[in-house]
Design a protein around this nucleic acid. Sequence first.
DNA 1: TAGTTAAGTGTACAGGTGTTCGCTGAATTG
DNA 2: CAATTCAGCGAACACCTGTACACTTAACTA
Lengths: 208, 208
Amino acid sequence: MAETRALQKEKTRQAIIEAALTQLTAEHGFSNLSLREVAREAGIAPTSFYRHFADMEELGLTLVDESGVTLRQLMRKARKRIEKKGSVINTSVDTFMEFVQKNPNIFRLLLRERSGTSAAFRDAVAREINHFKDELTDYLIFENNYPQDHAYALAEGLVTLVFNSGADSLDLPKQKQNELQQRLKKQLQFIAIGATALNENNMQGDKR
Amino acid sequence: MAETRALQKEKTRQAIIEAALTQLTAEHGFSNLSLREVAREAGIAPTSFYRHFADMEELGLTLVDESGVTLRQLMRKARKRIEKKGSVINTSVDTFMEFVQKNPNIFRLLLRERSGTSAAFRDAVAREINHFKDELTDYLIFENNYPQDHAYALAEGLVTLVFNSGADSLDLPKQKQNELQQRLKKQLQFIAIGATALNENNMQGDKR
DNA sequence: TAGTTAAGTGTACAGGTGTTCGCTGAATTG
DNA sequence: CAATTCAGCGAACACCTGTACACTTAACTA
């Protein structure tokens, strides 16, 4: 056999990642998360941490990347649901909120580091969010024949509203969460309908 | 005279607040800001800090409150400008972006602590943002005769979009900032027009 | 099987942290 | 003028941090 060593290494690597995610709660952000704490939680000596990551920032970026994977799975899931069920807005919102509820710590990480202290982090998170914007932009161009900049502005608005509602819903009791979710759907309708209306106006203008 | 002592105390209190604001940069968040650092910057002994604040959290909440004052001045300014110049969206956005540019550190504080580690902080920031939402809601009810919940959903959407663009614009070069600002205005138009359209629909529905 | 590689360990160090305590000296009071 | 208040100080405390270094020991290689 020539695998058990690499396998064990991967195992403790995952233990470190899991330990970090466990410690990322509402009260404990990544920036006040110490290498020693993570090592303790992962069940290894502090110095062993360096066998896997150069420093905490490298671990953090790994976490953001992992969350990106999860997010993209989420998008695929939403797309499949939409193909079957219809209603784009309702399905997308429900799917997204489901994700936030199931992975609060991952979402919290993205949320915080979006405006956090490290430029590398901010960029990494922005990249993930841009995936959403870009994909949605393409969809809007394809589906509604919007011009590029029009579609992008709309997509950005939609993503912003969804993402922020996710943030706000994190610490809310279930009933308030539902209210928020209903309000979000309303807001998405507003902006989508407004975009349609303004697009038609412009097209009429072009014909004259 | 019976004032010079209290006066001096207020002076160092302000020095502490200013020191904290100075240290709140893009690279240095409130949570990795130490009592000793602040004291050093303010030119006092670490222990003297306690003569003014029980701990760092109390200082932080004071900062949030102060930023609230600044924000409310901002709102008044915007209102006056609107009375004179008209265009609600353009004026509001310009005024807000002006504020963000002039007080990046205060805005960064609000931005980060909105999803930060301390519940007291999060509540304080939410309170400030709610001022905006509520005031805007009243305006929309008064101006457009929207029903309460309709107005609130719209107001929340508008505030969310504006606030987020402020956040995104912080580290952008001037040209990108302008593009962002234009896009924001477009998004606000979308959502405002959509809200009008849907409101008229509902009113027709009521008359039948 | 003998030699090499490398994940994980334990010790140690220098430096930062929040906070307690007893003190000073000037402003304030009566 | 004498007594009191109190903002600011310096030393000391216990604690936690990241990281360098030399080591063990099990897995891999040739």
